[in-house]
Amino acid sequence: MTIPTNYFLALSGVLFILGVLGVLIRRNSIVILMSIELMLNSANLAFIAFARAFEAHTGQVLVFFVIAVGAAEVAIGLSMIVSIYRSRGNIDIDQISQLKG
């Protein structure tokens, strides 16, 4: 028997929420970036599960694009962190709050 799609979706949801918690709780910007990758992955899992459920390849192709965009995002994000570290000497996300009203 095949595994029901709902199980995958539930796992995807749990992983997504864990990613959200990572973003909301951690102050290390590299870990926050990792949490975003986790959220992307949970979404990918949901895509793949739906693709199997509907027997459509489109979902898999979309995951391919998501991975490509994620790679680009990580490249930019990490280079920004490097840049911030150079100017401020740390990567604490809470230190970057010049826009405080």
Binding site: V20, V23, L24, I25, R27, I32, I93, D94, I96, S97, Q98, L99, K100, G101
Partner: peptide
């Protein structure tokens, strides 16, 4: 009073989005 909402903390904004 409203300006205190703009904390400057990215995580705070993320919480609001959430």
């Amino acid at each position: 009073r409203l300006r205190t909402l703009q904390t400057g903390y990215v995580r705070n904004y993320a919480l609001s989005i959430f």
